[in-house]
Amino acid sequence: MPVRRGHVAPQNTFLDTIIRKFEGQSRKFIIANARVENCAVIYCNDGFCELCGYSRAEVMQRPCTCDFLHGPRTQRRAAAQIAQALLGAEERKVEIAFYRKDGSCFLCLVDVVPVKNEDGAVIMFILNFEVVMEKDMVGSPAHDTNHRGPPTSWLAPGRAKTFRLKLPALLALTARESSVRSGGAGGAGAPGAVVVDVDLTPAAPSSESLALDEVTAMDNHVAGLGPAEERRALVGPGSPPRSAPGQLPSPRAHSLNPDASGSSCSLARTRSRESCASVRRASSADDIEAMRAGVLPPPPRHASTGAMHPLRSGLLNSTSDSDLVRYRTISKIPQITLNFVDLKGDPFLASPTSDREIIAPKIKERTHNVTEKVTQVLSLGADVLPEYKLQAPRIHRWTILHYSPFKAVWDWLILLLVIYTAVFTPYSAAFLLKETEEGPPATECGYACQPLAVVDLIVDIMFIVDILINFRTTYVNANEEVVSHPGRIAVHYFKGWFLIDMVAAIPFDLLI
């Protein structure tokens, strides 16, 4: 008679799926529990143990900040960024110097990925580790590398530091407007667009060049630039800015003055950032001319202004700041037409079709709590990747769950009947059967004279019903998954307890 339990259901295979997918890609990662103190490590794979030199037993239950890997060259700011990422709910990448158990130093890129439950609360953290440099290539500990984003994938490793954006290309926007319009339909740009040429040739750093990471940081200074100062900065030398009595002219307006920039070969870094931020506020060169004239017309309804409409929906549905990093990277690809469009465009503009998908598509409701890094690593669709929660398995109709209350009560009843059979069957065979043979035949009273025979008949009927119930009862397979398919249940029961239950259900007393 089957006594099969499996009270692990309803099970959740999400954690096993993450481990299996990460292991298949030869990654070095740990999984931490966000619900406990210090976000203790609950799993670390073999790749991480080989990377740091510690065994799994030495890593388990330690804080996922990996303070046991810190050393003299470990930056405090990087460690603080990892700790801050564990307090938030967004994906974050941090470069930090770690030390192995043998004392060797290596520069590592740590990717902190939160995993949320159905309520939107962070319950786990996945920390992925990628070695960037070994100890002989690690720089000085005073050099802070965590304020910069990861290198873009479309640049060669040897040319990542030679990417320079020439400031004269930004200063000569109005001069290039006529050349853009003359391109017409034969050019790649839309009317009114501004073409910015980027020099990728390796050259020595000069005062006129600005690194790509500095251009990325310009967006942080746009908020500090007032509207009046932006307007004066875009007017140009024809209309000098008016300053109040006793007030000095704005240095932001002076930063885009061609006369002032041409007199000296070098520009201050602050002026460069502010000038680029001011130019980015204009949607095209037409807006710059309109600002000089004193009238700013409404933005025209053409394809170039609607190019950012799908980007707005993608940004609203993005799951991490990696989408913004990807957008900034692609927006700086050289030799393309940049349409400086305000994100607050007309909502009635139709979304044009684009061959290049900048932001990841909208994630469906079932995966809105899973970050983009987890979705990318697992390579699963929205119909396959579940949320991290207890999910009731989908069972067929008329199927009994093996952990249901009805099955528990039924098993206790069958257990009592088995005990009765084990006690009274030998007793009936030894004593009652002998008395029946010696006594007179009682054929007239039937079952009324033999109450134990009636009980034995009921017990046999219950055993037959138990066999039928076992054909529709779920079970737990070797992978700790609840199986509810009727065919698989029948095959599993035939290979197991079916023969024993059938022999126990045969009414031998009635056959004798």
Results as ranks from 00 to 15, higher is better:
L109R: 09
V41D: 01
S318G: 11
C49W: 01
A185M: 14
L212E: 06
H302V: 11
V384N: 11
L173S: 14
R100C: 01
F163V: 06
K332T: 08
D67A: 08
R280C: 08
S354R: 05
V94H: 03
T201N: 06
F163N: 14
T13S: 08
N339S: 09
R20N: 08
A223C: 03
L171I: 05
C276G: 09
E118L: 13
K166N: 05
P114T: 01
Q376D: 03
S178A: 14
R326S: 12
R62D: 01
E91K: 08
E134I: 04
D102A: 01
V59G: 01
L200F: 06
R56C: 03
D286I: 14
L200W: 06
V194P: 01
S140Y: 15
L385I: 08
G71N: 01
N38V: 01
R35V: 13
V374H: 15
N12F: 07
L316Y: 07
S272G: 05
A307D: 14
Y327I: 08
A260N: 12
A97G: 05
F129T: 01
L349C: 04
A244S: 05
S379Q: 06
I363D: 09
F68H: 01
G149T: 08
R27V: 07
P334D: 15
F22G: 07
H70C: 14
T174G: 15
Q75W: 01
T201V: 05
K28Y: 06
R164P: 14
R292G: 14
V138Y: 06
R366S: 11
L296R: 15
S313V: 07
S104L: 08
S140H: 06
G88M: 12
V195F: 03
W154Q: 07
V138G: 13
E23R: 01
Y43C: 01
R328A: 11
E58A: 03
A79H: 13
L267I: 02
K21V: 13
G158K: 07
N38T: 06
C64A: 15
D286H: 15
P237D: 05
E372L: 04
G186C: 05
V295A: 14
A169Y: 12
A78E: 10
T270V: 13
D323K: 08
G47V: 01
F22T: 07
H7M: 11
I123P: 13
S104G: 13
A57T: 13
G294Q: 13
L212C: 06
E50I: 05
S320M: 15
A303Q: 11
L311M: 14
T329G: 06
D286R: 05
S266I: 07
I96Q: 06
E50Q: 15
T65G: 03
A211R: 11
S178P: 12
G103Y: 05
L212N: 09
P114C: 01
P141N: 14
F125A: 10
A303V: 07
R92D: 08
E208C: 01
G381N: 07
S318R: 12
P141I: 11
R252G: 14
F348W: 06
H147C: 05
R62G: 14
K332M: 05
G246R: 14
T162P: 15
E365M: 07
L385C: 04
A121R: 07
R273I: 12
Q75A: 14
V370R: 09
V113I: 13
F129S: 01
C44W: 01
C105L: 10
L315F: 07
N369I: 11
A293E: 08
R76N: 15
E90G: 08
I359L: 12
D213S: 06
H70T: 07
C52I: 15
V180H: 15
A9P: 06
V215T: 09
A40L: 13
I336E: 07
S261L: 07
G186L: 07
R328L: 04
L349V: 11
G236F: 15
G103C: 12
L86I: 15
L173G: 15
T152R: 14
P347G: 13
A172K: 06
P251S: 13
L51P: 01
G103P: 01
V36T: 13
S283V: 11
V3C: 08
G186Y: 11
D119L: 10
H368C: 13
L210D: 08
T375V: 14
L210K: 01
P63H: 03
F125Q: 12
N257C: 15
V8S: 10
S351M: 07
H309C: 12
M60F: 08
S322L: 07
F129H: 04
R164N: 11
M124E: 01
S261F: 12
K373S: 04
P258E: 11
E130F: 06
D219P: 06
D286N: 05
S278K: 12
G238F: 04
R159M: 14
P205F: 06
Y327R: 07
S239K: 12
A121K: 14
S318I: 07
S26A: 14
N33S: 10
M124S: 06
G88K: 14
S250T: 07
V131S: 12
N45C: 04
R148S: 14
G139P: 09
D111N: 13
G192F: 01
I363W: 10
D287C: 06
S351P: 08
A57R: 14
A156F: 15
N317L: 08
H221I: 12
L225F: 04
P251Y: 13
E274K: 04
P310F: 09
G192W: 01
V94Q: 06
A203Q: 06
N339C: 02
I96Y: 01
A290W: 15
G306S: 14
L170N: 08
K116Y: 10
G345L: 06
A253G: 09
T152D: 05
G246M: 06
D346Y: 05
R20E: 09
S304A: 12
S263A: 12
F48M: 01
K21D: 12
D67S: 09
R76I: 14
L338K: 09
M308A: 11
G192H: 05
L380D: 03
A217D: 11
M60Y: 14
G238E: 11
G192R: 01
K362T: 12
V3P: 07
K332A: 07
S179V: 06
D144W: 06
T353S: 10
P352G: 07
T145M: 05
D355R: 07
S263K: 15
G381V: 08
A80F: 09
G306W: 03
R292D: 03
R281C: 10
P237K: 14
V196N: 11
L173A: 15
S104N: 13
P298T: 09
Q81A: 14
T174E: 14
K21A: 07
A79D: 01
P297N: 04
F340G: 14
A175Y: 03
L109S: 15
T152V: 12
P237G: 13
S179N: 09
D144G: 14
L69K: 01
D102V: 01
D213G: 06
A268E: 07
N12C: 08
V377S: 04
D219E: 06
L86P: 01
P205M: 06
G238M: 08
K161Y: 01
H368I: 11
P202A: 06
G120V: 06
S104Y: 03
S26C: 07
A160P: 13
N45P: 01
I19F: 03
I359Q: 05
L15G: 01
W154E: 15
N38W: 01
S278P: 14
M308G: 11
D321T: 05
L378R: 02
S266G: 11
R281V: 11
E289Y: 01
S140N: 11
I126M: 08
P310I: 09
M218V: 07
R273M: 15
P258G: 14
P227F: 14
P10Y: 08
S207G: 12
A244K: 14
Q75C: 14
P245S: 15
M133R: 12
Y327Q: 12
A260M: 07
S264A: 14
I31W: 01
